[in-house]
Design a protein around this nucleic acid. Sequence first.
DNA 1: TTATGATATTATACTAGTATTACCGTCAAG
DNA 2: CTTGACGGTAATACTAGTATAATATCATAA
Lengths: 346, 346
Amino acid sequence: MAARSDDRSRPAGGAQKLGVREIAKRVGVAPMTVSRVISHPELVSPETRAKVLAAIEEAGFVPNRLASSMRRSGRIIGTVVPPLINSGIAEQVQGMSDECQQRGYSMLLVQGEFTPEAEDRSVRTILGWRPAGLILQSFVQSDVARQLILASQLPVVEISEIRGRAPIDMAVGVSNFETARAMTLHLASRGYRKIGFVSTPIHGNDRLQQRRTGYHAALSDLGFSNRADLEVEVPITAEGGAHALILLTERHADIDAIFFSSDTLAVGAVQECHRRGWPIPGRIAIAGYGDADIAAQLFPPLTTVRVRRYEMGRRAAGQLLDRLAGVQDLPAITDVGFEIVDRASA
Amino acid sequence: MAARSDDRSRPAGGAQKLGVREIAKRVGVAPMTVSRVISHPELVSPETRAKVLAAIEEAGFVPNRLASSMRRSGRIIGTVVPPLINSGIAEQVQGMSDECQQRGYSMLLVQGEFTPEAEDRSVRTILGWRPAGLILQSFVQSDVARQLILASQLPVVEISEIRGRAPIDMAVGVSNFETARAMTLHLASRGYRKIGFVSTPIHGNDRLQQRRTGYHAALSDLGFSNRADLEVEVPITAEGGAHALILLTERHADIDAIFFSSDTLAVGAVQECHRRGWPIPGRIAIAGYGDADIAAQLFPPLTTVRVRRYEMGRRAAGQLLDRLAGVQDLPAITDVGFEIVDRASA
DNA sequence: TTATGATATTATACTAGTATTACCGTCAAG
DNA sequence: CTTGACGGTAATACTAGTATAATATCATAA
């Protein structure tokens, strides 16, 4: 720690602070030449380039991206992610990260909340770094934030519900409405007649709203009644899922299927069934959402909705970077599609 | 999309690009005054401040953090995370993110791999942004990368194994060695005599190395033999866990317990037992690592090692920011501790 | 031998916010 | 009535890399 006491002090006399100018001086060229070696090496003669690179290497010089980002557009993609890097969001981030990495961009991660003020703050923070583009992982509800984003003129990809809403710029995702509707219809096609719906807190989360709406739509299609007491909101934990199962089965002795808005919840519910010795789907059918790694391995294997989240993240970043690279005619809305994965639990 | 055709074009005649200078002009003060309103509002008279803030608000001006970071130290914390935002790393990131957010810092997330070259690249990328500090979530093995970090003089917190290694600067974490040793001893205390060890790929991952070493140490302590055929490496998936269970029980009909280096694996193994109708721990005892959300809810409840990952992330960021705030005498090594969570599965 | 072009390199100015220094007006003490 | 202090604001210069235009160098062609 003693060695760090001078962290904030200026380097002493001889040691010039490292920069293109210093490297240039050492090699005996102009700073601009060093800069070119860094960002446009093909414009520099091989001999000069070699000398400069050697000096850079020797000095351990890492170019300052802040400075370079001031003249040319910086190579950062800003992203706002919901709280709880949970429930598959992490996979999306992973996808984005991989794509960005590969194409020479960095990712600035700002965590958002589902409240307008927090959204506002997140967006401001991100814009402050003058990113080349934005990826938003949740619907922007705050008008101020929306306005700021529009005014920034930046390319934006939203990973969110793609149904019935004009994207700020581009959107990548699935129709949560359709996924939920499809799953509900699927359950009905299996003969289940009283289907519950369990989700994590819906307020402010447009994807969940759409899923619930899809569930409702399916019930209507089927001529089933929409009963609010067939729906429960719980925290996004296995315990939440177990709790919801208990609640719904106590309310309705004859409930025969439950559709959970997340595999995490469904897995929790399945464990509760095991505890009670209830056969699945004999006593009750369980369906999840997301096709998490565990879903296929679960006992019994979990019927769920597969949305390829990694792919979504990757596509989102890819499309953004394509736009930045000048690719024309990119689709405003990209539907990555989904699948009902029919397994033994329902 | 048409509205965006001018993304890269310069704003037309009248529209000056927004900056402190433009705001200053509109209000009729010097640019410096605007800057002060942004970063040191207390130094500006209330009337001037109000006028400037109004103008900023009205114009939708978001100060450029790149520019401000050039003179004063930028408020970014750089972090390198392992691939697979999986297995609890996400929780750590969440913790870091929360702490940074709260204290006015942004987080730059760079994904690293467990190879020296990739490490090198990640570290360079991060340092390029001239962060105020670094949080490393995996052991830095590349000498070059290490050298760069040291030369940068930045405060660094490593979230990693805290045993038997001098941290680059500070370290927060647990002794993976002790955790694994403790769990192995715990299993032995329950009467299990042939204890397998299953982990995700160990190569290049110091935490896993330490866990394995801890497992070995415990076996030696107990007078059990260290047999390589009691160990398996599998991918970090539930399927991997199931696969490992099959493999080990085929190799050793008399194996009576398996310690998995991750709850994900353990959960997969438990499902495989269900499929085979094997009672847990009657036929075989299962122990995990991490105390993931699902662990307590699993049927049967999973015996595991609790390491509070969110807390680790939070503490790591907190300590880094403390250092940046000038707090003296911060501990070089912070052990966040662990617990053996004794549940029914073993 | 000179003109032409291509290529390589340098000089200058620019990005946008801010530390620093200098300055001005106001008020209280001498 | 002057001096000093102080709160507030302005002017200047600085951060570090890079776009751009200008210049230098050399090879080839007329």
